[in-house]
Design a protein around this nucleic acid. Structure first.
Lengths: 288, 288
DNA sequence: CCGTGTGATACCTGCTGGGTATCACAGTGT
DNA sequence: ACACTGTGATACCCAGCAGGTATCACACGG
Protein backbone atom coordinates (compact mmCIF):
# COMPACT_ATOMS: atom_id res chain seq x y z
CA UNK A 1 0.00 0.00 0.00
CA UNK A 2 1.42 3.35 -0.96
CA UNK A 3 1.71 6.40 1.27
CA UNK A 4 -1.41 7.86 -0.21
CA UNK A 5 -4.71 6.04 -0.12
CA UNK A 6 -6.02 5.53 3.36
CA UNK A 7 -8.09 2.50 4.27
CA UNK A 8 -11.65 2.95 5.44
CA UNK A 9 -10.70 1.17 8.68
CA UNK A 10 -8.31 4.00 9.49
CA UNK A 11 -10.96 6.60 8.75
CA UNK A 12 -13.52 4.79 10.92
CA UNK A 13 -11.01 4.65 13.76
CA UNK A 14 -10.20 8.31 13.43
CA UNK A 15 -13.85 9.34 13.33
CA UNK A 16 -14.52 7.35 16.49
CA UNK A 17 -11.65 9.02 18.33
CA UNK A 18 -12.51 12.46 16.97
CA UNK A 19 -16.11 12.11 18.07
CA UNK A 20 -15.42 10.62 21.50
CA UNK A 21 -12.20 12.59 22.13
CA UNK A 22 -11.27 9.66 24.32
CA UNK A 23 -9.22 6.65 23.15
CA UNK A 24 -10.75 4.23 25.65
CA UNK A 25 -14.36 4.95 24.80
CA UNK A 26 -13.60 5.11 21.07
CA UNK A 27 -11.93 1.69 21.24
CA UNK A 28 -14.90 0.27 23.10
CA UNK A 29 -17.26 1.68 20.51
CA UNK A 30 -15.17 0.10 17.75
CA UNK A 31 -15.03 -3.22 19.57
CA UNK A 32 -11.24 -3.30 19.79
CA UNK A 33 -8.71 -2.68 22.56
CA UNK A 34 -7.22 0.73 23.22
CA UNK A 35 -3.55 0.13 22.32
CA UNK A 36 -4.15 -0.91 18.70
CA UNK A 37 -6.32 2.16 18.30
CA UNK A 38 -3.61 4.46 19.63
CA UNK A 39 -1.17 2.84 17.26
CA UNK A 40 -3.51 3.12 14.28
CA UNK A 41 -4.06 6.83 14.87
CA UNK A 42 -0.36 7.43 15.29
CA UNK A 43 0.28 5.58 12.04
CA UNK A 44 -2.37 7.67 10.32
CA UNK A 45 -0.71 10.86 11.53
CA UNK A 46 2.67 9.64 10.31
CA UNK A 47 1.22 8.64 6.98
CA UNK A 48 -0.43 12.02 6.43
CA UNK A 49 2.53 13.87 7.87
CA UNK A 50 0.13 15.96 9.91
CA UNK A 51 -0.81 16.13 13.57
CA UNK A 52 -4.51 15.37 13.92
CA UNK A 53 -4.95 15.37 17.68
CA UNK A 54 -3.27 17.45 20.34
CA UNK A 55 -2.94 15.14 23.31
CA UNK A 56 -1.50 16.71 26.45
CA UNK A 57 -1.29 13.31 28.13
CA UNK A 58 -4.62 14.03 29.72
CA UNK A 59 -6.91 15.81 27.30
CA UNK A 60 -7.49 14.97 23.64
CA UNK A 61 -8.49 17.74 21.23
CA UNK A 62 -8.74 18.05 17.46
CA UNK A 63 -6.22 20.20 15.59
CA UNK A 64 -7.35 22.20 12.57
CA UNK A 65 -6.15 19.42 10.29
CA UNK A 66 -8.03 16.93 12.47
CA UNK A 67 -11.25 18.87 12.01
CA UNK A 68 -10.73 18.80 8.25
CA UNK A 69 -10.14 15.06 8.29
CA UNK A 70 -13.21 14.48 10.47
CA UNK A 71 -15.44 16.29 8.01
CA UNK A 72 -13.85 14.66 4.97
CA UNK A 73 -13.85 11.23 6.57
CA UNK A 74 -17.57 11.35 7.19
CA UNK A 75 -18.16 12.20 3.55
CA UNK A 76 -15.78 9.50 2.33
CA UNK A 77 -17.19 6.81 4.61
CA UNK A 78 -20.70 7.73 3.54
CA UNK A 79 -19.61 7.32 -0.07
CA UNK A 80 -18.14 3.90 0.63
CA UNK A 81 -21.20 2.57 2.41
CA UNK A 82 -23.33 4.08 -0.33
CA UNK A 83 -21.32 2.11 -2.88
CA UNK A 84 -22.00 -1.12 -1.00
CA UNK A 85 -25.68 -0.42 -0.43
CA UNK A 86 -26.45 0.69 -3.96
CA UNK A 87 -24.59 -2.29 -5.41
CA UNK A 88 -26.55 -4.71 -3.23
CA UNK A 89 -29.78 -3.09 -4.26
CA UNK A 90 -28.82 -3.16 -7.93
CA UNK A 91 -28.08 -6.87 -7.68
CA UNK A 92 -31.10 -7.93 -5.71
CA UNK A 93 -33.48 -6.00 -7.94
CA UNK A 94 -35.70 -5.23 -4.95
CA UNK A 95 -36.37 -1.81 -6.34
CA UNK A 96 -38.32 -0.16 -3.53
CA UNK A 97 -37.43 3.51 -3.36
CA UNK A 98 -36.40 4.64 0.12
CA UNK A 99 -37.61 8.08 1.14
CA UNK A 100 -36.30 9.72 4.29
CA UNK A 101 -37.86 12.65 6.10
CA UNK A 102 -37.71 14.37 9.46
CA UNK A 103 -40.15 12.69 11.84
CA UNK A 104 -43.30 14.80 12.05
CA UNK A 105 -42.53 17.21 9.23
CA UNK A 106 -44.64 17.64 6.12
CA UNK A 107 -46.93 14.78 7.05
CA UNK A 108 -49.88 15.67 4.84
CA UNK A 109 -47.65 16.49 1.91
CA UNK A 110 -45.98 13.11 2.23
CA UNK A 111 -49.33 11.34 2.33
CA UNK A 112 -50.40 13.07 -0.87
CA UNK A 113 -47.07 12.25 -2.51
CA UNK A 114 -47.31 8.57 -1.58
CA UNK A 115 -50.93 8.39 -2.75
CA UNK A 116 -50.05 9.92 -6.11
CA UNK A 117 -47.03 7.67 -6.46
CA UNK A 118 -49.10 4.58 -5.67
CA UNK A 119 -51.74 5.65 -8.21
CA UNK A 120 -49.12 5.90 -10.94
CA UNK A 121 -48.98 2.36 -12.26
CA UNK A 122 -45.34 2.10 -13.22
CA UNK A 123 -43.75 3.42 -10.02
CA UNK A 124 -41.82 1.32 -7.54
CA UNK A 125 -43.14 0.96 -3.98
CA UNK A 126 -41.84 3.65 -1.65
CA UNK A 127 -40.42 2.83 1.79
CA UNK A 128 -40.49 5.70 4.26
CA UNK A 129 -37.72 6.15 6.81
CA UNK A 130 -37.88 8.76 9.56
CA UNK A 131 -34.74 10.43 10.81
CA UNK A 132 -33.61 13.07 13.26
CA UNK A 133 -33.51 16.76 12.43
CA UNK A 134 -30.92 17.49 9.74
CA UNK A 135 -29.95 13.84 9.23
CA UNK A 136 -31.51 13.52 5.77
CA UNK A 137 -28.34 14.58 3.97
CA UNK A 138 -26.34 11.76 5.54
CA UNK A 139 -29.03 9.22 4.68
CA UNK A 140 -28.81 10.26 1.05
CA UNK A 141 -25.03 10.39 0.97
CA UNK A 142 -24.60 6.96 2.58
CA UNK A 143 -27.18 5.34 0.31
CA UNK A 144 -29.50 4.48 3.18
CA UNK A 145 -32.12 6.49 1.31
CA UNK A 146 -32.66 7.38 -2.34
CA UNK A 147 -34.67 10.53 -1.86
CA UNK A 148 -35.52 12.91 0.97
CA UNK A 149 -37.98 15.58 1.96
CA UNK A 150 -35.92 18.61 2.91
CA UNK A 151 -36.58 22.29 3.52
CA UNK A 152 -35.11 25.34 1.89
CA UNK A 153 -33.49 27.49 3.21
CA UNK A 154 -33.02 25.62 6.52
CA UNK A 155 -31.38 22.43 5.18
CA UNK A 156 -28.07 22.50 3.34
CA UNK A 157 -28.88 21.30 -0.16
CA UNK A 158 -25.31 21.40 -1.51
CA UNK A 159 -24.64 18.39 -3.69
CA UNK A 160 -28.26 17.45 -4.18
CA UNK A 161 -30.70 17.87 -7.02
CA UNK A 162 -34.13 19.07 -5.93
CA UNK A 163 -37.71 19.44 -7.05
CA UNK A 164 -39.92 21.95 -5.25
CA UNK A 165 -43.03 20.53 -3.63
CA UNK A 166 -44.67 23.21 -1.58
CA UNK A 167 -44.02 26.69 -0.20
CA UNK A 168 -45.43 28.08 3.02
CA UNK A 169 -44.97 30.74 5.66
CA UNK A 170 -43.87 30.19 9.23
CA UNK A 171 -45.66 30.44 12.55
CA UNK A 172 -44.44 31.08 16.06
CA UNK A 173 -45.36 28.28 18.45
CA UNK A 174 -46.11 29.81 21.85
CA UNK A 175 -47.43 28.64 25.20
CA UNK A 176 -51.17 29.33 25.11
CA UNK A 177 -51.20 31.61 28.14
CA UNK A 178 -48.44 33.94 26.93
CA UNK A 179 -49.25 37.61 26.06
CA UNK A 180 -47.84 37.20 22.54
CA UNK A 181 -50.19 34.26 21.89
CA UNK A 182 -53.22 36.53 21.61
CA UNK A 183 -51.72 38.69 18.83
CA UNK A 184 -53.15 38.08 15.33
CA UNK A 185 -49.68 38.11 13.82
CA UNK A 186 -46.06 38.65 14.80
CA UNK A 187 -42.72 39.73 13.34
CA UNK A 188 -39.27 38.25 13.85
CA UNK A 189 -38.53 41.36 15.91
CA UNK A 190 -41.39 40.42 18.25
CA UNK A 191 -40.27 36.84 18.82
CA UNK A 192 -36.52 37.33 19.13
CA UNK A 193 -35.25 38.33 22.55
CA UNK A 194 -38.48 37.69 24.41
CA UNK A 195 -36.97 37.67 27.92
CA UNK A 196 -39.17 34.93 29.38
CA UNK A 197 -39.09 32.73 26.23
CA UNK A 198 -35.41 32.31 25.23
CA UNK A 199 -34.60 30.26 22.12
CA UNK A 200 -33.72 26.64 22.91
CA UNK A 201 -30.22 25.36 22.24
CA UNK A 202 -29.55 22.18 20.21
CA UNK A 203 -26.36 20.16 20.61
CA UNK A 204 -23.67 20.76 18.01
CA UNK A 205 -22.12 17.92 16.03
CA UNK A 206 -19.52 17.42 18.76
CA UNK A 207 -22.21 17.13 21.43
CA UNK A 208 -21.54 20.47 23.12
CA UNK A 209 -24.17 23.16 23.47
CA UNK A 210 -23.85 26.77 22.37
CA UNK A 211 -23.99 29.36 25.12
CA UNK A 212 -27.19 31.24 25.79
CA UNK A 213 -30.10 31.59 28.16
CA UNK A 214 -32.40 29.02 26.50
CA UNK A 215 -32.94 25.42 27.66
CA UNK A 216 -30.84 22.59 26.20
CA UNK A 217 -32.82 20.14 24.06
CA UNK A 218 -32.06 17.24 21.80
CA UNK A 219 -35.44 15.89 20.74
CA UNK A 220 -38.47 17.43 19.15
CA UNK A 221 -40.93 16.23 21.81
CA UNK A 222 -38.68 17.69 24.53
CA UNK A 223 -38.89 21.02 22.78
CA UNK A 224 -42.65 20.78 22.29
CA UNK A 225 -43.06 20.08 25.98
CA UNK A 226 -40.87 23.03 26.93
CA UNK A 227 -43.09 25.30 24.85
CA UNK A 228 -46.19 23.89 26.56
CA UNK A 229 -44.48 24.56 29.89
CA UNK A 230 -43.94 28.19 28.91
CA UNK A 231 -40.14 27.88 28.85
CA UNK A 232 -39.38 28.71 25.23
CA UNK A 233 -40.86 29.47 21.81
CA UNK A 234 -40.01 28.42 18.30
CA UNK A 235 -40.61 29.44 14.72
CA UNK A 236 -41.58 26.60 12.36
CA UNK A 237 -43.32 26.05 9.01
CA UNK A 238 -47.07 26.49 9.26
CA UNK A 239 -47.84 22.87 8.37
CA UNK A 240 -45.75 21.23 11.09
CA UNK A 241 -48.76 19.87 12.90
CA UNK A 242 -46.67 17.28 14.70
CA UNK A 243 -45.20 20.02 16.83
CA UNK A 244 -48.52 21.38 17.96
CA UNK A 245 -49.92 20.42 21.34
CA UNK A 246 -53.24 21.47 22.88
CA UNK A 247 -51.34 23.92 25.10
CA UNK A 248 -49.70 25.58 22.08
CA UNK A 249 -50.85 28.55 20.06
CA UNK A 250 -49.54 29.13 16.54
CA UNK A 251 -49.28 32.75 15.38
CA UNK A 252 -48.13 33.67 11.86
CA UNK A 253 -44.74 35.40 11.69
CA UNK A 254 -45.23 37.65 8.70
CA UNK A 255 -41.61 38.48 7.93
CA UNK A 256 -40.04 35.08 8.59
CA UNK A 257 -38.37 33.51 5.57
CA UNK A 258 -40.68 31.39 3.44
CA UNK A 259 -40.03 27.64 3.74
CA UNK A 260 -40.05 25.49 0.60
CA UNK A 261 -40.42 21.75 1.04
CA UNK A 262 -38.36 20.02 -1.65
CA UNK A 263 -37.76 16.51 -2.84
CA UNK A 264 -33.96 16.03 -2.81
CA UNK A 265 -31.67 13.29 -4.12
CA UNK A 266 -27.94 12.82 -4.68
CA UNK A 267 -26.94 14.79 -7.75
CA UNK A 268 -26.43 12.42 -10.65
CA UNK A 269 -28.36 9.48 -9.15
CA UNK A 270 -31.25 9.30 -11.54
CA UNK A 271 -33.43 6.23 -11.88
CA UNK A 272 -36.78 5.57 -13.47
CA UNK A 273 -38.36 5.02 -10.05
CA UNK A 274 -37.05 8.37 -8.88
CA UNK A 275 -38.21 10.08 -12.05
CA UNK A 276 -41.74 8.79 -11.42
CA UNK A 277 -41.68 10.24 -7.91
CA UNK A 278 -40.46 13.58 -9.23
CA UNK A 279 -43.37 13.60 -11.69
CA UNK A 280 -45.74 13.04 -8.76
CA UNK A 281 -44.03 15.93 -6.96
CA UNK A 282 -44.59 18.17 -9.96
CA UNK A 283 -48.29 17.33 -9.87
CA UNK A 284 -48.49 18.34 -6.23
CA UNK A 285 -46.69 21.61 -6.85
CA UNK A 286 -48.94 22.50 -9.76
CA UNK A 287 -52.24 21.61 -8.05
CA UNK A 288 -51.83 22.80 -4.48
CA UNK B 1 -14.75 -6.27 10.31
CA UNK B 2 -18.46 -6.57 9.75
CA UNK B 3 -20.20 -7.68 6.57
CA UNK B 4 -20.88 -4.09 5.63
CA UNK B 5 -18.11 -1.57 5.16
CA UNK B 6 -15.78 -2.37 2.33
CA UNK B 7 -12.13 -1.45 2.45
CA UNK B 8 -10.73 0.98 -0.11
CA UNK B 9 -8.28 -1.74 -1.16
CA UNK B 10 -11.19 -3.88 -2.31
CA UNK B 11 -12.67 -0.98 -4.23
CA UNK B 12 -9.36 -0.20 -5.90
CA UNK B 13 -9.00 -3.83 -6.91
CA UNK B 14 -12.51 -3.96 -8.29
CA UNK B 15 -12.08 -0.75 -10.26
CA UNK B 16 -8.88 -2.08 -11.80
CA UNK B 17 -10.58 -5.30 -12.90
CA UNK B 18 -13.70 -3.50 -14.10
CA UNK B 19 -11.64 -1.11 -16.18
CA UNK B 20 -9.28 -3.69 -17.65
CA UNK B 21 -11.84 -6.50 -17.87
CA UNK B 22 -8.83 -8.76 -17.54
CA UNK B 23 -7.52 -10.16 -14.24
CA UNK B 24 -3.95 -10.48 -15.39
CA UNK B 25 -3.57 -6.92 -16.63
CA UNK B 26 -5.50 -5.56 -13.63
CA UNK B 27 -3.17 -7.41 -11.26
CA UNK B 28 -0.14 -6.07 -13.08
CA UNK B 29 -1.52 -2.54 -12.87
CA UNK B 30 -2.08 -2.99 -9.15
CA UNK B 31 1.39 -4.41 -8.64
CA UNK B 32 0.17 -7.72 -7.21
CA UNK B 33 -0.15 -11.25 -8.58
CA UNK B 34 -3.28 -12.49 -10.30
CA UNK B 35 -4.47 -15.17 -7.83
CA UNK B 36 -4.85 -12.83 -4.81
CA UNK B 37 -6.79 -10.48 -7.06
CA UNK B 38 -9.18 -13.23 -8.15
CA UNK B 39 -9.67 -14.17 -4.53
CA UNK B 40 -10.26 -10.56 -3.45
CA UNK B 41 -12.93 -10.03 -6.10
CA UNK B 42 -14.61 -13.31 -5.22
CA UNK B 43 -14.61 -12.27 -1.55
CA UNK B 44 -16.09 -8.91 -2.48
CA UNK B 45 -18.88 -10.60 -4.40
CA UNK B 46 -19.60 -12.92 -1.47
CA UNK B 47 -19.56 -10.00 0.95
CA UNK B 48 -22.01 -7.99 -1.14
CA UNK B 49 -24.07 -11.06 -1.99
CA UNK B 50 -24.12 -9.92 -5.60
CA UNK B 51 -22.43 -11.08 -8.78
CA UNK B 52 -20.28 -8.25 -10.14
CA UNK B 53 -18.60 -9.91 -13.11
CA UNK B 54 -19.88 -12.53 -15.50
CA UNK B 55 -16.86 -14.64 -16.33
CA UNK B 56 -17.42 -17.36 -18.91
CA UNK B 57 -14.01 -18.81 -18.26
CA UNK B 58 -12.73 -16.79 -21.15
CA UNK B 59 -14.36 -13.37 -21.26
CA UNK B 60 -14.93 -11.02 -18.34
CA UNK B 61 -17.87 -8.60 -18.44
CA UNK B 62 -19.56 -6.32 -15.92
CA UNK B 63 -23.02 -7.18 -14.65
CA UNK B 64 -25.53 -4.41 -13.95
CA UNK B 65 -24.55 -4.50 -10.29
CA UNK B 66 -20.92 -4.34 -11.34
CA UNK B 67 -21.53 -1.21 -13.35
CA UNK B 68 -23.19 0.37 -10.32
CA UNK B 69 -20.25 -0.54 -8.11
CA UNK B 70 -17.77 0.82 -10.65
CA UNK B 71 -19.46 4.20 -10.72
CA UNK B 72 -19.91 4.32 -6.95
CA UNK B 73 -16.38 3.09 -6.29
CA UNK B 74 -14.86 5.91 -8.32
CA UNK B 75 -16.85 8.44 -6.31
CA UNK B 76 -15.95 6.80 -3.00
CA UNK B 77 -12.24 6.48 -3.83
CA UNK B 78 -12.17 10.09 -4.93
CA UNK B 79 -13.70 11.06 -1.61
CA UNK B 80 -11.08 9.08 0.32
CA UNK B 81 -8.12 10.56 -1.55
CA UNK B 82 -9.72 13.98 -1.18
CA UNK B 83 -9.83 13.44 2.57
CA UNK B 84 -6.12 12.66 2.66
CA UNK B 85 -5.12 15.52 0.36
CA UNK B 86 -7.20 18.16 2.08
CA UNK B 87 -5.99 17.07 5.48
CA UNK B 88 -2.36 17.29 4.39
CA UNK B 89 -2.94 20.73 2.97
CA UNK B 90 -4.73 21.87 6.11
CA UNK B 91 -1.80 20.72 8.21
CA UNK B 92 1.01 22.05 6.10
CA UNK B 93 -0.60 25.45 5.68
CA UNK B 94 0.88 25.74 2.20
CA UNK B 95 -2.29 27.38 1.07
CA UNK B 96 -1.78 27.69 -2.68
CA UNK B 97 -5.11 27.27 -4.42
CA UNK B 98 -5.03 24.63 -7.17
CA UNK B 99 -7.05 25.48 -10.27
CA UNK B 100 -7.66 22.85 -12.94
CA UNK B 101 -8.80 23.49 -16.49
CA UNK B 102 -8.96 21.74 -19.83
CA UNK B 103 -5.72 22.28 -21.69
CA UNK B 104 -6.20 25.00 -24.28
CA UNK B 105 -9.62 26.20 -23.18
CA UNK B 106 -10.40 29.71 -21.97
CA UNK B 107 -6.77 30.74 -22.04
CA UNK B 108 -7.28 34.50 -22.13
CA UNK B 109 -9.97 34.34 -19.50
CA UNK B 110 -7.65 32.40 -17.23
CA UNK B 111 -4.86 34.92 -17.73
CA UNK B 112 -7.16 37.76 -16.74
CA UNK B 113 -8.40 35.80 -13.73
CA UNK B 114 -4.87 35.06 -12.53
CA UNK B 115 -3.81 38.66 -13.06
CA UNK B 116 -6.76 39.96 -11.06
CA UNK B 117 -6.19 37.40 -8.35
CA UNK B 118 -2.51 38.31 -8.11
CA UNK B 119 -3.41 42.01 -7.89
CA UNK B 120 -5.73 41.37 -4.95
CA UNK B 121 -3.36 41.61 -1.99
CA UNK B 122 -4.89 39.06 0.32
CA UNK B 123 -5.29 36.14 -2.09
CA UNK B 124 -3.29 32.96 -2.00
CA UNK B 125 -1.05 32.04 -4.95
CA UNK B 126 -2.87 29.99 -7.59
CA UNK B 127 -1.36 26.83 -9.07
CA UNK B 128 -2.75 25.88 -12.48
CA UNK B 129 -3.17 22.23 -13.46
CA UNK B 130 -4.17 21.16 -16.95
CA UNK B 131 -6.29 18.06 -17.49
CA UNK B 132 -7.94 16.09 -20.26
CA UNK B 133 -11.39 16.89 -21.57
CA UNK B 134 -14.05 16.31 -18.93
CA UNK B 135 -11.58 15.36 -16.20
CA UNK B 136 -12.08 18.50 -14.11
CA UNK B 137 -14.87 16.97 -12.04
CA UNK B 138 -12.64 14.12 -10.87
CA UNK B 139 -9.85 16.53 -9.98
CA UNK B 140 -12.25 18.47 -7.78
CA UNK B 141 -13.81 15.38 -6.21
CA UNK B 142 -10.49 13.77 -5.38
CA UNK B 143 -9.05 16.94 -3.88
CA UNK B 144 -6.30 17.21 -6.49
CA UNK B 145 -7.74 20.64 -7.29
CA UNK B 146 -9.73 23.19 -5.30
CA UNK B 147 -11.42 24.97 -8.16
CA UNK B 148 -11.94 24.40 -11.88
CA UNK B 149 -12.85 26.22 -15.05
CA UNK B 150 -15.80 24.35 -16.54
CA UNK B 151 -18.37 25.01 -19.21
CA UNK B 152 -22.15 25.04 -19.04
CA UNK B 153 -24.01 23.22 -20.52
CA UNK B 154 -21.32 20.80 -21.75
CA UNK B 155 -19.83 19.78 -18.38
CA UNK B 156 -21.87 18.04 -15.70
CA UNK B 157 -21.93 20.49 -12.80
CA UNK B 158 -23.89 18.29 -10.39
CA UNK B 159 -22.45 18.54 -6.91
CA UNK B 160 -20.53 21.72 -7.52
CA UNK B 161 -21.10 25.34 -6.67
CA UNK B 162 -20.36 27.73 -9.52
CA UNK B 163 -19.76 31.36 -10.37
CA UNK B 164 -20.30 32.51 -13.95
CA UNK B 165 -17.28 34.04 -15.64
CA UNK B 166 -18.07 34.61 -19.28
CA UNK B 167 -20.67 33.75 -21.91
CA UNK B 168 -20.05 33.33 -25.61
CA UNK B 169 -21.40 31.79 -28.78
CA UNK B 170 -19.93 28.87 -30.66
CA UNK B 171 -18.16 28.58 -33.97
CA UNK B 172 -17.80 25.71 -36.40
CA UNK B 173 -14.17 24.81 -37.07
CA UNK B 174 -13.82 23.75 -40.72
CA UNK B 175 -11.04 22.83 -43.14
CA UNK B 176 -10.23 26.08 -44.99
CA UNK B 177 -10.96 24.67 -48.43
CA UNK B 178 -14.42 23.37 -47.65
CA UNK B 179 -17.49 24.98 -49.31
CA UNK B 180 -19.09 25.70 -45.91
CA UNK B 181 -16.01 27.65 -44.85
CA UNK B 182 -16.83 30.56 -47.11
CA UNK B 183 -20.29 31.12 -45.58
CA UNK B 184 -20.56 34.17 -43.26
CA UNK B 185 -22.53 32.15 -40.70
CA UNK B 186 -23.99 28.67 -40.21
CA UNK B 187 -26.76 26.87 -38.33
CA UNK B 188 -26.65 23.56 -36.50
CA UNK B 189 -28.72 22.19 -39.35
CA UNK B 190 -25.94 23.16 -41.74
CA UNK B 191 -23.14 21.46 -39.83
CA UNK B 192 -24.91 18.27 -38.73
CA UNK B 193 -24.86 15.45 -41.25
CA UNK B 194 -22.38 17.02 -43.63
CA UNK B 195 -21.58 13.82 -45.58
CA UNK B 196 -17.88 14.48 -46.10
CA UNK B 197 -17.29 15.87 -42.59
CA UNK B 198 -18.75 13.37 -40.08
CA UNK B 199 -18.53 14.19 -36.37
CA UNK B 200 -15.55 12.58 -34.62
CA UNK B 201 -16.08 9.91 -31.95
CA UNK B 202 -14.44 10.12 -28.50
CA UNK B 203 -13.84 7.04 -26.36
CA UNK B 204 -16.37 6.38 -23.64
CA UNK B 205 -15.35 5.88 -20.02
CA UNK B 206 -14.90 2.16 -20.64
CA UNK B 207 -12.59 2.82 -23.58
CA UNK B 208 -15.00 1.72 -26.31
CA UNK B 209 -16.10 4.03 -29.11
CA UNK B 210 -19.70 4.82 -30.10
CA UNK B 211 -20.76 3.70 -33.57
CA UNK B 212 -20.83 6.16 -36.42
CA UNK B 213 -19.07 7.27 -39.57
CA UNK B 214 -16.67 9.77 -37.97
CA UNK B 215 -13.00 9.14 -37.12
CA UNK B 216 -11.99 7.88 -33.66
CA UNK B 217 -9.98 10.40 -31.63
CA UNK B 218 -8.70 10.69 -28.11
CA UNK B 219 -6.70 13.88 -28.01
CA UNK B 220 -7.44 17.45 -28.92
CA UNK B 221 -4.50 17.84 -31.29
CA UNK B 222 -5.51 14.67 -33.11
CA UNK B 223 -8.89 16.20 -33.70
CA UNK B 224 -7.45 19.55 -34.78
CA UNK B 225 -5.28 17.77 -37.29
CA UNK B 226 -8.22 15.79 -38.65
CA UNK B 227 -10.06 19.05 -39.25
CA UNK B 228 -7.03 20.49 -41.05
CA UNK B 229 -6.97 17.31 -43.16
CA UNK B 230 -10.59 17.86 -44.14
CA UNK B 231 -11.81 14.72 -42.36
CA UNK B 232 -14.19 16.18 -39.79
CA UNK B 233 -15.58 19.38 -38.29
CA UNK B 234 -16.38 20.47 -34.78
CA UNK B 235 -18.40 23.08 -32.96
CA UNK B 236 -16.57 24.82 -30.10
CA UNK B 237 -16.77 28.01 -28.05
CA UNK B 238 -15.63 31.05 -30.01
CA UNK B 239 -12.65 31.75 -27.73
CA UNK B 240 -10.99 28.34 -28.02
CA UNK B 241 -7.99 29.70 -29.88
CA UNK B 242 -5.92 26.68 -28.95
CA UNK B 243 -7.94 24.60 -31.39
CA UNK B 244 -7.37 26.89 -34.31
CA UNK B 245 -4.71 26.03 -36.92
CA UNK B 246 -3.73 28.06 -40.00
CA UNK B 247 -5.64 25.55 -42.15
CA UNK B 248 -8.81 26.08 -40.12
CA UNK B 249 -11.66 28.49 -40.68
CA UNK B 250 -14.02 29.41 -37.85
CA UNK B 251 -17.59 30.30 -38.81
CA UNK B 252 -20.18 31.42 -36.21
CA UNK B 253 -22.98 28.93 -35.62
CA UNK B 254 -25.85 31.25 -34.82
CA UNK B 255 -28.25 28.78 -33.19
CA UNK B 256 -25.75 26.67 -31.23
CA UNK B 257 -26.26 26.74 -27.46
CA UNK B 258 -24.43 29.54 -25.72
CA UNK B 259 -21.44 28.37 -23.65
CA UNK B 260 -20.87 29.84 -20.21
CA UNK B 261 -17.44 29.47 -18.68
CA UNK B 262 -17.85 29.02 -14.93
CA UNK B 263 -15.62 28.76 -11.91
CA UNK B 264 -16.65 25.54 -10.12
CA UNK B 265 -15.75 24.02 -6.74
CA UNK B 266 -16.99 21.19 -4.55
CA UNK B 267 -20.23 22.25 -2.91
CA UNK B 268 -19.59 23.11 0.70
CA UNK B 269 -15.83 23.57 0.39
CA UNK B 270 -15.53 27.24 1.03
CA UNK B 271 -12.29 28.90 2.02
CA UNK B 272 -11.10 32.46 2.19
CA UNK B 273 -8.68 31.88 -0.68
CA UNK B 274 -11.50 30.52 -2.81
CA UNK B 275 -13.75 33.42 -1.88
CA UNK B 276 -11.08 35.85 -3.11
CA UNK B 277 -10.91 34.07 -6.45
CA UNK B 278 -14.69 34.16 -6.77
CA UNK B 279 -14.56 37.91 -6.16
CA UNK B 280 -12.04 38.20 -8.99
CA UNK B 281 -14.38 36.16 -11.17
CA UNK B 282 -17.24 38.53 -10.40
CA UNK B 283 -15.07 41.46 -11.53
CA UNK B 284 -14.41 39.74 -14.84
CA UNK B 285 -18.08 38.97 -15.38
CA UNK B 286 -19.11 42.54 -14.65
CA UNK B 287 -16.41 44.24 -16.74
CA UNK B 288 -16.09 42.10 -19.87
C1' DC C 1 2.51 12.26 47.89
C1' DC C 2 -0.24 8.57 46.79
C1' DG C 3 -4.32 6.99 44.02
C1' DT C 4 -6.70 7.11 39.73
C1' DG C 5 -7.56 7.73 35.11
C1' DT C 6 -5.66 7.72 30.57
C1' DG C 7 -2.70 7.42 26.65
C1' DA C 8 1.82 5.24 25.19
C1' DT C 9 4.97 1.25 24.92
C1' DA C 10 6.51 -3.59 24.68
C1' DC C 11 5.75 -7.81 23.13
C1' DC C 12 3.26 -11.80 21.57
C1' DT C 13 -0.08 -14.31 18.41
C1' DG C 14 -3.06 -15.54 14.71
C1' DC C 15 -5.40 -14.02 10.69
C1' DT C 16 -5.23 -12.93 6.15
C1' DG C 17 -3.27 -10.73 2.21
C1' DG C 18 0.09 -11.93 -1.08
C1' DG C 19 3.29 -15.11 -3.53
C1' DT C 20 4.37 -19.57 -6.42
C1' DA C 21 2.96 -23.58 -8.69
C1' DT C 22 -0.53 -25.73 -10.97
C1' DC C 23 -5.00 -26.90 -12.81
C1' DA C 24 -9.06 -26.45 -15.91
C1' DC C 25 -11.03 -24.98 -19.69
C1' DA C 26 -12.21 -22.28 -24.04
C1' DG C 27 -10.84 -20.90 -28.33
C1' DT C 28 -7.53 -21.53 -32.30
C1' DG C 29 -4.64 -23.18 -35.86
C1' DT C 30 -2.79 -26.98 -38.49
C1' DA D 1 -9.04 -34.11 -34.04
C1' DC D 2 -5.53 -32.60 -31.17
C1' DA D 3 -1.96 -29.95 -29.34
C1' DC D 4 -1.24 -25.14 -28.09
C1' DT D 5 -2.09 -20.91 -25.84
C1' DG D 6 -4.10 -17.69 -23.05
C1' DT D 7 -6.67 -16.93 -18.87
C1' DG D 8 -9.14 -17.42 -14.62
C1' DA D 9 -9.54 -20.65 -10.54
C1' DT D 10 -7.41 -23.55 -6.92
C1' DA D 11 -4.01 -25.23 -3.51
C1' DC D 12 -0.75 -24.24 -0.47
C1' DC D 13 2.81 -21.64 1.98
C1' DC D 14 4.73 -17.54 4.25
C1' DA D 15 5.18 -13.23 6.50
C1' DG D 16 3.53 -8.86 7.89
C1' DC D 17 0.55 -6.62 10.59
C1' DA D 18 -3.81 -5.99 13.10
C1' DG D 19 -5.21 -6.92 17.52
C1' DG D 20 -4.65 -8.71 22.31
C1' DT D 21 -2.43 -8.50 27.26
C1' DA D 22 0.55 -6.50 30.50
C1' DT D 23 2.69 -2.59 31.88
C1' DC D 24 4.53 2.01 32.01
C1' DA D 25 4.40 7.15 32.31
C1' DC D 26 2.38 10.94 33.43
C1' DA D 27 -1.35 14.52 34.81
C1' DC D 28 -4.44 15.66 38.04
C1' DG D 29 -7.21 15.45 42.63
C1' DG D 30 -7.41 14.67 47.18
Amino acid sequence: MCMDDLETRELRYFVAVAEELHFGRAAERLGIAQPPLSRAIRQLERRLGVQLLSRNRRVVALTDAGRVLLRESRVALDAVTAAARRTRRAGNEQQALVLVTKAGASHELLQRLLALSAADTDTAPVDVVLCEVGEQARFLRSGRADVALMHRPVDDLAGFDTADLHTEGQVALLPSGHPLASRPQLTLEDVSNVPDLPIARWPRLDGSYPDGPGPEVHTQSQLAQLVALGKTLLVIPASSRAWQWPDHVAVPVVDAPVITTVLAWSAGHHSSALAALVRAAAQIRDTP
